[in-house]
């Protein structure tokens, strides 16, 4: 097998770049939306009232038990029904990603909050602060330090997850590559490229997080 044609990559580059842009969009939106919604869920789960904490717990448990692909299918059909008109695969996928990743961000944020000693809350309450002030001024800044590496790690996982929009025919990096692969009959070149690009990005990001964590520990 010497008849590889790596030129196919150069020829399809603009198309692939569009795919990468869509992957990036998915990562950015699901991270921003997921963290925001995840923060809300985490605060709900900390509530003393069962009717606030309960629904959040159920939501997180369900989302964490089902495959992302199934969630993508759900919203692919559900979002147009709720809105009442066709919205396209991208909108549905964005909704699915935000709602799905929020459950994972919720657990990371909760772990961060729980890593702060209970005594810190007591001390802050004892000076007369309200619970919301304690959360904002004392718990969150400390919890954030504990959760940062995990948050960044989750971003890498989200980036890998975005490849699954393949199943709803959205043209992310992976899917554009597979389109070229079958159009030009070059699966070897294209899938190798995809693997190398993902490997390079994810590996260097995770090493950077590791170094950042080590630097901070010192």
């Amino acid at each position: 097998m010497n008849d590889f044609d790596w030129g196919v990559i150069a020829r399809s580059w603009p198309f692939l770049a569009e795919g990468m842009a869509l992957s990036a969009l998915l990562v950015v939106v699901s991270t921003a939306g997921g963290i925001l919604l995840g923060l809300g869920l985490a605060l709900m789960r900390r509530s003393d009232h069962a009717f606030i904490a309960g629904p959040a717990t159920v939501y997180v448990t369900v989302m964490r038990s089902v495959p992302l692909i199934l969630v993508l299918f759900w919203f692919y059909f559900l979002v147009p029904l709720v809105i009442g008109r066709p919205v396209g695969a991208l909108a549905s996928a964005l909704v699915a990603f935000v709602l799905f990743e929020a459950a994972f961000y919720c657990e990371i944020i909760r772990a961060g909050i729980n890593s702060v000693r209970a005594g810190q809350t007591e001390a802050a309450l004892a000076t007369g602060m309200r619970r919301s002030q304690v959360m904002r001024l004392i718990i969150m800044p400390q919890g954030l330090r504990a959760m940062t590496p995990l948050l960044f790690n989750q971003v890498i996982i989200v980036f890998q997850d975005t490849s699954l929009v393949y199943v709803v025919a959205l043209r992310d990096f992976m899917t554009t590559a597979s389109v070229v692969a079958s159009r030009d009959g070059r699966p070897t070149e294209m899938y190798t490229l995809v693997a190398v690009v993902y490997l390079a990005i994810c590996f260097s990001l995770s090493k950077a997080i590791e170094l950042y964590g080590k630097g901070r520990a010192r």
């Binding site: 004892a126 007369g128 309200r130 400390q142």
Partner: peptide, 18 residues
Amino acid sequence: PALRAQIGMVFQNFELYP
């Protein structure tokens, strides 16, 4: 909170904000 503001408290483990 208003009441607690008038009572100072000191803890075994200091609980300073790190």
